[in-house]
Design a binder for these strands. Structure first.
Lengths: 217, 217
DNA sequence: ACGCAATTCAAACGACTGTTTAAATCGCTA
DNA sequence: TAGCGATTTAAACAGTCGTTTGAATTGCGT
């Protein structure tokens, strides 16, 4: 029951559970799933091996919670921004740029929130996508599919000239470009020798322009 | 020196080296890098553990050769199709659709060539991208960057109204959408309950239309 | 301050990892 | 057919893997 605040031995104020989640996230982002071991996780979290199984059951359930923790947050923000545009009327015709912003910008907020470590997570997400992670697939199907569908429908209303099927495809491709870009964020910004913050804002602005252009009629 | 044709025990006519490359490719596509072991590889290739180290040195060099084998082929085709459009004059203004076709369609050919197993490789490629594979990164930087640059310049000539930087970004996003789509090819086609061949042609057609729209001025 | 539950810990489990070794086998040439 | 280099093989190497165990420790309510 305790789950106490720990100040001893120069450690941060986070609980063991949170430290484990954070170190897992960092290790996946840095070295991928192939090199991920619970021994490295527990070392980086300054805790014991068995603490992981105690708090999460097993390795896979830990990974699942790493994904869920931030994905729930991301999709909640996306949804509420879309709802704000719709203002209670899901049949309202919204500005395309605003819709795309509601989808893309929350990823921006996450990635820029240094303290919350969102940037790290976007790389985790990209890796999980590529691994065809089963837990991610189920999360998408069960929990997030309705939100993605709501965006697709809003885009459909904003672009009445485009066939429904074309909307589906292009939105799919935009998600692909977003995922790819976020996953390669660290690497590309180094290659371009540009401050990360600047490069990041540039990425999102260009991505929104790109998506707008791709959805024009 | 032998490297003989093997007909015994119902085995295919491929050499041990080729069988190892193929089984590695399949295992990466099916279960990702995290579950890849040289024992599984050698079992599937109907050969011995040590044959891998004998023929490739170590596991990493084997993976490198899996990537190189088909990437060399893919970029050779892309390059020759672009050269054909340019007809010796790299300053010639080409049709945008033709340029995009020269970039995207070779991936189509590979993916449709059942015998060569190109479809499998595109999933390997997507996974390697997501893993930020160092060997892939070096291949791209050293060998393929000039070809990608040549495409970017051809697109620049075809879209003179777009700033050079915008071209760079959008081409980057298009590569992202292509990579993402190819990586998720198997999964999505099942979900859509459409014959693979049909779904595949649809994907490429939609992807080219998407890219064209995204590069319009 | 005692007791109990929550948490942490060290140690060990068997299974699997990539690589190396040396012997056995193969296919060609002389 | 004898010999030789190329290839294949079985066996063992030292590590690391995820998980489980039971004991030590912690912190809170009584």
């Amino acid at each position: 029951m305790p789950e106490p605040f720990l100040f001893h031995s120069g450690m941060s104020t986070l609980s063991t559970k949170e430290r484990i989640l954070n170190s897992t996230e960092k290790l996946i982002a840095e070295h991928g799933f192939s090199e991920l071991s619970i021994r490295k996780i527990s070392q980086r979290a300054h805790t014991n091996l068995a603490a992981i199984n105690y708090h999460f059951g097993n390795k896979q359930q830990l990974i699942d919670q790493v994904l869920e923790r931030r994905l729930n947050n991301l999709f909640d923000i996306r949804k509420s921004m879309l709802d704000e545009l719709n203002q209670g009327d899901s049949n309202k015709v919204c500005n395309l740029e605003q819709i795309l912003h509601a989808f893309i910008a929350p990823a921006l907020f996450m990635i820029n929130d240094e303290h919350q470590g969102g940037r790290i997570f976007m790389q985790v997400l990209a890796r999980a996508y590529a691994e065809q992670s089963e837990s991610l697939h189920e999360l998408m199907k069960d929990r997030y599919a309705p939100i993605i569908k709501a965006f697709a429908e809003a885009i459909g209303l904003a672009c009445p000239e485009l066939p429904r099927e074309t909307i589906f495809w292009r939105f799919h491709f935009i998600i692909g470009a977003l995922t790819y870009t976020m996953g390669h964020f660290g690497a590309t910004s180094v290659a371009r020798q540009m401050p990360e913050a600047e490069y990041f804002e540039k990425s999102v602005a260009e991505l929104i322009e790109f998506a707008k252009a791709a959805l024009r009629t």
